[in-house]
Design a protein around this nucleic acid. Structure first.
Lengths: 197, 197
DNA sequence: GTCTATAAATGGATAGAC
DNA sequence: GTCTATCCATTTATAGAC
């Protein structure tokens, strides 16, 4: 493990560096406006080295996408775990999402606002990815336990998280004139009033 | 007006035909996956003729985008106009949006799910476009008239329309297992319970 | 494992005939 | 106004030296 990293005078993890910089470029300019030359210039890593670590540009994007979905999934799972009832779990999820949006705006920009299917033909729609399924699962359990009044599960999930997701979008677009966190309590309150049994 | 359309054996409005087909291609494949050759093949209109009507590919996209935003803006304005109070106006807006989504899925796909700023550098974020401002306006008036309980206006607007917009996204992604219209009443009910004074 | 140089293909855009 | 043919820049991807 200490052997693979000492080539070319720079011992750091080249692959991670490429992924990190690519995320920045993709989230700022989009996949199609970012050429491998752009990535080379921004990282100092040659095209050949990039191709040594990733099969092609699409595979690079796919690696990035799956890593970020995993991260998001883990953050959401960890937010849900400590809580029992639907209301507490939903609150924890929104809290985690807002923190992710503030701490890692590029990651959330890439996950929420990119059209992945335009360049990852095999990707399933984002709404059926694991983190989003976990969010829907919270609401479905709430419905089963009668913590939420009887509603279609799609309606309930959209009502629970639709407002928060919209605010995250607005924040990432720079449209909000107030700090995102200042809006969390009211958002949770609105959503819950719409759902409570 | 009858003179310009009779060239080349086909009298129909060539420009409109190009716009229509381009919408289909852009909404299905995205802007960057659609070449002018694709548009030529799909329309039968030569590259030269396309360039005669549009300055370049970007201008074609811009024309499409602005036309659709105008259409959406008009649909929303007409939905709002006949009603007095916030609740009725909001209901009419969601109803209009759902109908648009069902009747013109390509148009809504293009407006809601495309990242226009990646290819229209001068476009402002979609959330500050006129139709979305009109939607926010409905909520702001509701706040002023105390039909909605005291809330931040961003929170209130996101709570009012966030769930419905999310369902539209899910429908366009093919994720819903039930007809979109069947979910409207419950969605409106959830949103309003969260907001009512 | 990393680099440079280059191949091969495609795309946007233009020129000029009709 | 519309068409065909072509130009030129850019891009992904590969070959081969180190």
């Amino acid at each position: 493990m200490a052997k693979a990293e000492q080539k070319s005078g720079r011992g750091e993890d080249l692959k991670a560096e490429v992924l990190k910089t690519t995320l920045t470029l993709f989230s700022q300019q989009g996949y199609f406006n970012t050429s491998l030359q752009d990535i080379r210039k921004a990282t100092g890593v040659s095209i050949g080295a990039i191709y040594h670590h990733f099969e092609n540009k699409e595979a690079l994007a796919k690696s990035l996408y799956e890593t970020l979905l995993d991260e998001m999934n883990q953050a959401i799972s960890e937010a849900i775990a400590p809580h029992e009832n639907c209301r507490a779990q939903s609150r924890a999820v929104v809290e985690a999402l807002f923190h992710l949006t503030l701490d890692e705006p590029q990651k959330m920009q890439f996950i929420l606002m990119a059209q992945h299917r335009e360049y990852l033909p095999d990707a399933s729609p984002i709404c059926s990815s694991r983190p989003f399924q976990a969010m829907k699962g919270v609401v479905e359990q709430g419905l089963r336990k009668k913590e939420i009044r009887p509603l279609d599960s799609w309606v309930a999930a959209s009502a629970m998280f639709g407002g928060a997701l919209r605010l995250m979008n607005l924040h990432l677009d720079g449209a909000l004139d107030r700090p995102l966190m200042d809006l969390m309590e009211e958002t949770l309150d609105c959503a819950w009033r719409g759902l409570e049994a």
